[in-house]
Design a protein around this nucleic acid. Structure first.
Lengths: 369, 369
DNA sequence: AGCATCCGCTAAAGCGCTTTAGCTAAGGGT
DNA sequence: ACCCTTAGCTAAAGCGCTTTAGCGGATGCT
């Protein structure tokens, strides 16, 4: 029967298969998509159809499937910023890594909405009331900055999407996948406490972010649990941070070290690997031994894989499992596509502590006292 | 007239627009796609249609467009490897940067074919004779490894695509955008020659690649031009390279330095920034002053932006304008879409020399002789 | 006046697929 | 012997778009 692909340059269609197998296209469709509940097909017929599909080298047309059925195996990815930004180059990278991996696993293509913008020329989900993401089966929204109004509206419309990063601002109906920074921070404090540290500092950056607040929450919880009271303080660089009203304001890294000495803190936890790195350098210059005199931990490693891949020094850091987050976002989205209208998934992903060489037991003189 | 988006959850279609503007769908299609040659439409009607489009917030359905044989503003990107690989992380990055930029500029979405694979589960353009890229208007193929057969077939089919990287293997009909490594290498030699260098070494890596050959070509041309003869030699690490039969084989960086001393070479040009960096370190350890005693130039910076962004040392490097290449690829693809069947574009992009601190005039004793 | 053009538009035929409605024949219950 | 069910299938209606064929009417040419 081997009829092959002789049909000019014409595509082999479902029709061709149907003819060859002596059935209707409905049957072919059902067989191809393995839909048991749509139509009943006997084993015999099923086999005949597969045979014809093989013989003719039939592959379904994605556009047609999409048009007819709704699903087209396209997963969208939307960001308000450039997906491949010049600065902060590594921010999206690992998310995309995970997203790509999972998309590949599940046989989906990835649609980057680089063309989605409003009349003002800004990246945007809607333009003149039109949902620009509609082409894809669903989408993953990733990014630091978001437009809460658009997100809310998207959710109202029933468009299936999953956000990366916790998004309380967008309302309770939004599905998201986010790193569990609160738990991670608690874990760090637990770890330090177990080593014998009884006094520590949390250093926050100057910009406010959902993550800052979350880390602070974890810090406070751990502080309460271990009854650290004043011996677990939060400090902020530069101007006061409105979200951390009771935090002490310090000018720079040197000040942080001074403050640590004064309050007897034996460990410093900083919001990002960048900040902790700066503190590390200043401490070293000031003759403070790390980790002998002072333990150092960073709570994030976004934006600088440098420290992860070629650790110098090997800072002890909380690692954000971005890749896993990306993959989970895809899986979650697919699940939502299969069960539309189910209640939102809001998933926290555990962070790992990447052990470096900047954490140890506190110095004796304090401990022995 | 503001009828808005009331229509249940139903999509706003061309029909709706046509009705609202009191024209046929043919007119709407023509207006939307700005096709002057298909159908003539008066200015008045055109305005009325746009108005209706505005009012109804109409967005074309890409799947339908695609099915019906039109354009859908989707630019595909295909790679045989992961687009976001864990290792060699930076290889695709800058290309994507440029591609995204240009796609955004021109209002196109980017479709990453992460789902395109054959029955064996490998990434592939065709599966059982079906072109899996068909959903997009055209595609950019980027990557080191390629399957020449698939590419040739794609070209035969008339599918519009542009490759990144020169691809002679794929035949003369293929459009490509590539860095001009030959010219870059010549430029480097010219530069060294102008500074007074009369004897230099080209160090190639062990793996063969189109680019290696091209750099070699440039080197040889410059050598001929400046009548350097034996004073411009090529060396290879480890095993002999089949593409460079007359190159001297050396075990490692130390050997290269020894060889340079023996032959009186005052400058070393290495294929990649990685290799030149290694040589730099070994030289420093051996007490060779850079650039006092020896000038060092790298011919590529792929895969390690490290040196570009935080130069330490500031190696003198040929910079591959990947971003520009990506952007050019998109522009070229769009041009080809407008003029299908035109003769292939094969564009070489000039490299830049990023001045570092590892190049200077050769040492006096040689020059003064 | 008569014919050929050209302009501006409509009608309708697909593109390849999914899905619903319905049909036939075989079997089961009463 | 009758009706009902069920298994296994077909026919056909779209999904939303592009494009071709063709149709009136206005205009130009002779």
């Amino acid at each position: 029967m081997s009829e092959r692909q002789r049909v000019g340059r014409r595509r082999v269609t479902q029709q061709d298969v149907a003819r060859a197998a002596n059935v209707s296209t409905a049957i072919v469709s059902t067989v191809v998509n393995n839909k048991a509940d749509t139509l009943r097909v006997s084993e015999q017929t099923r086999a005949r159809v597969w045979q014809a599909i093989q013989d003719l080298a039939y592959v379904p047309n994605a556009a047609a499937q999409s048009l007819a059925g709704g699903r087209n195996r396209l997963i969208g990815a939307f960001t308000y910023q450039r997906l491949f930004p010049w600065e902060s180059r590594d921010f999206y990278y690992e998310f995309l890594l995970g997203i790509e991996e999972e998309a590949e696993q599940t046989g989906h293509n990835l649609l980057l909405f680089t063309g989605a913008r409003n009349d003002a020329g800004e990246r945007s989900i809607f333009n003149r009331n039109a949902n620009l993401l509609e082409l894809a089966d669903g989408a993953i929204l990733v990014g630091g900055r978001i437009d809460g109004d658009e997100i809310r509206r998207l959710a109202e419309e029933g468009y299936p999407f999953v956000m990366i990063g916790r998004r309380d601002a967008a309302g309770p109906k939004v599905s998201w996948i986010a790193a569990d920074y609160a738990a991670a921070t608690q874990m760090v404090v637990d770890r330090l406490h177990a080593l014998g540290h009884r006094s520590m500092l949390l250093v926050a950056g100057r910009r406010t972010h959902e993550t800052v607040v979350e880390r602070r929450t974890g810090f406070q919880a751990a502080r309460r649990r271990h009854r650290l009271g004043d011996r677990a303080q939060t400090v902020v660089f530069g101007e006061p941070n409105p979200d951390l009203p009771d935090a002490t304001c310090l000018a720079d890294e040197t000040e942080v070290l001074r403050f640590a000495r004064e309050t007897g803190a034996t460990a410093v936890i900083a919001e990002s690997s960048y900040v902790i790195h700066r503190i590390y350098e200043v401490a070293l210059a000031a003759g403070v031994r790390i980790p002998g005199d002072l333990s150092l931990v960073g709570l994030g490693d976004h934006g600088d894989r440098q420290n992860v891949l070629s650790p110098d020094p090997a800072l002890t850091l909380v690692h954000t499992p971005s890749r896993l987050i990306g993959a989970t976002a895809v899986r979650t989205l697919l699940r939502r596509l299969d069960a539309p209208g189910s209640k939102p998934d809001q998933i926290r992903i555990q962070c790992e502590l990447s052990e470096g060489t900047t954490v140890a037991a506190p110095p004796r003189r304090k401990a022995g006292k």
